[in-house]
């Protein structure tokens, strides 16, 4: 069943994303073609800058659009009339949330790769090979300084942290959409979901500010200095520790947001 869910999720997402992929790659090709023309004219400069701006805008639209399409699909598929079919399938709420989240993540990665490929096309006049050379030099330098084992472990930890952060972003939006469905009145459910997101965002900012105030009031400068000294003495342990704190922190919030969506779908479902 999960395989079939993935099949329909991917086909529905890609149907909407393909035109955006074409736009990004099209503007990248356009930019590259413009570069073949005479470079010392005002017309060239205007066309070149415009095509770069167009490429940047289309990449932003693709990345934001991917997230938007993923979240709106979750809402439409689960909580509107379509939910009557989706939630009548012999599938668990866990399978629904997981397939939607994994598909959204995979499509996000795909969109990122398309943007990267677009950038490659636009910079294939020699700049791209310079960027690759610089990246390769940095990697070699990093490996030489920290060793191959540490380079691999840092890379894996950073990738894991990035993936968990992306999943956390998707799941917090799913949780807000799910919470927006609560209450007796069925009206303005998308507005309620947006409201929940802003409440969440505001709460996060308030907590972060409160944390900074606590540090300032308690005068922890001495302890912070000690911490900085410890980091200087044990840079690898500190880097690993901070990366793992980030990983556990993100994983914890992923579980919380997943649980909220699951709870609404299994215990508080109230379709329009």
């Amino acid at each position: 069943m999960v395989k079939k869910l993935f099949k329909y999720e991917f086909s529905a997402m890609l149907k909407k994303l393909l035109p955006l992929f074409v736009i990004v790659l099209g503007t990248a090709f356009l930019n590259r073609i413009i570069q073949f023309f005479e470079r010392d004219s005002t017309t060239y400069n205007i066309l070149f800058v415009s095509s770069v701006v167009l490429l940047v805008i289309s990449c932003v639209v693709l990345l934001v659009g991917t997230l938007w399409i993923s979240v709106s699909r979750y809402y439409k598929n689960m909580f509107t009339n379509e939910g009557y079919l989706t939630l009548s399938l012999p599938v668990t709420a866990d399978q629904h949330i997981t397939t939607k989240c994994v598909t959204a993540l995979a499509c996000g990665i795909l969109s990122f790769l398309v943007c990267l490929f677009g950038g490659m096309i636009a910079t294939s006049n020699g700049i791209f090979s310079e960027i690759v050379k610089a990246g390769w030099w940095l990697l070699r330098k990093f490996t030489k300084t920290f060793g191959a084992g540490r380079t691999i472990s840092y890379s894996l930890e950073v990738i894991l942290l990035l993936l968990l952060s992306a999943v956390k972003t998707i799941l917090v939006l799913y949780a807000c959409v799910s919470l927006g469905q609560l209450g007796k009145r069925n009206r303005n459910r998308p507005a309620k979901a947006v409201g929940f997101f802003f409440i969440y965002y505001f709460a996060v900012q308030v907590l972060a500010t409160a944390g900074l105030i606590v540090i300032a009031v308690l005068d922890l400068s001495g302890k912070l200095e000690a911490l900085a000294e410890w980091i200087n003495l044990h840079p690898h342990t500190a880097a690993n520790l901070f990366l793992w704190i980030g990983i556990v922190w993100s994983a914890g919030f992923c579980i919380l947001y997943y649980w909220i969506s699951r709870h609404v779908l299994t215990k508080k479902l109230n379709l329009e």
């Binding site: 009339n81 379509e82 939910g83 009557y84 079919l85 009548s88 399938l89 012999p90 599938v91 668990t92």
Partner: peptide
């Protein structure tokens, strides 16, 4: 009610539920 019952229940809601 759950995945097992959904296998044996054919449901027609009172609205258009198809994409």
């Amino acid at each position: 009610p759950g995945p097992e019952t959904k296998k044996v229940v054919a449901y027609l809601p009172d609205r258009n539920f198809l994409n």
